[in-house]
Amino acid sequence: MMSAEKKPLLEVKHLKKYFPVGKNQTLKAVRDISLNLYKGETLGLVGESGCGKSTFGRTVIQLYEPTEGTIIYEGREINNSLSKAERHEFTRKMQMIFQDPYASLNPRMKVMDIIAEGMDAHGVYKGQERKKKVIELLETVGLSEEHANRFPHEFSGGQRQRVGIARALAVDPEFIICDEPISALDVSIQAQVINLLKELQKKRDLTYLFIAHDLSMVKHISDRIGVMYLGSMVELTDSETLFDDPVHPYTQALLSAIPIPDPDVEKSRNRIMLEGSLPDPIRLSEGCLFAGRCPYAEDLCRKNTPEMKEVRPGHFAACHKAK
């Protein structure tokens, strides 16, 4: 779906993020992930809790320093050698929307100042213009001028998430990392926020990295989807193919575990039940990390770690048995 000559907006190469935990132990939260993001697309990132999807997003936006690997944005490597001005420019272009709209807004600040904080930091709008811009942003996300002087506690969850989106948009970013932006919201409100994100993407030509565990929403909003398991990417392809023809046994199990809101379908479905739960991420064995729960695992899988390979054009999977 993405043409080969198209230049990626963001290139992530062999990204690793390790955290020290306790005595001489390391938690390998992200283990060697490479991917490209193209302008205007939405890449969904899914996986169960603890798979490293949020850590990946936070490392890309430089909230964490990568242990290894490179992040290239518009052809320029983002690392410590950037000058202050360059870093400033980069932080303006990349913004983040967080999961919990209750925790991510400062309760002591008025919505006006929450939204304008980024503008102030970057010194882009001042005085009357700043106020005008905030009101414009509030209207963009479906709120209105009267909300500018209120505090976060006066808003519902969905409205707070709209404030979070307005804040991210304030510095006219090109790329937004959405870290579980709807999982704290009620079902009837989730669709509102998803529609808003899609509309903004169309109007402003935004690129999204959309991190979530609700696969049906991810499918709806994403052009391509990456599936993570224990810090590694196990499958990456366009969203239709991922749902219609998944090749990695973990993806297959994950998709089959989603309950479908249709009683007749649910009663007649054959589920792939995974045995056991996630292994301890600190003490992992050799070979494929999924081998212990995989119904198809054989000796090869327990010995060698599978590499990401292109099983079909644009369809990548890390599995010895994937064809």
């Binding site: 409205q159 009620d186 009837s188 669709a191 509102q192 529609n195 049906s216 709806h220 809101p261």
Partner: peptide, 24 residues
């Protein structure tokens, strides 16, 4: 009906989800 409609379906791809406007 609104709750059921707001769940994304294959046919919704590329179009808006049917959201329930407003709040409880």
């Amino acid at each position: 009906k609104g709750l059921l409609a707001s769940i994304p379906k294959a046919s919704d791809k590329g179009s808006d989800l049917t959201a329930i406007p407003g709040t409880p």
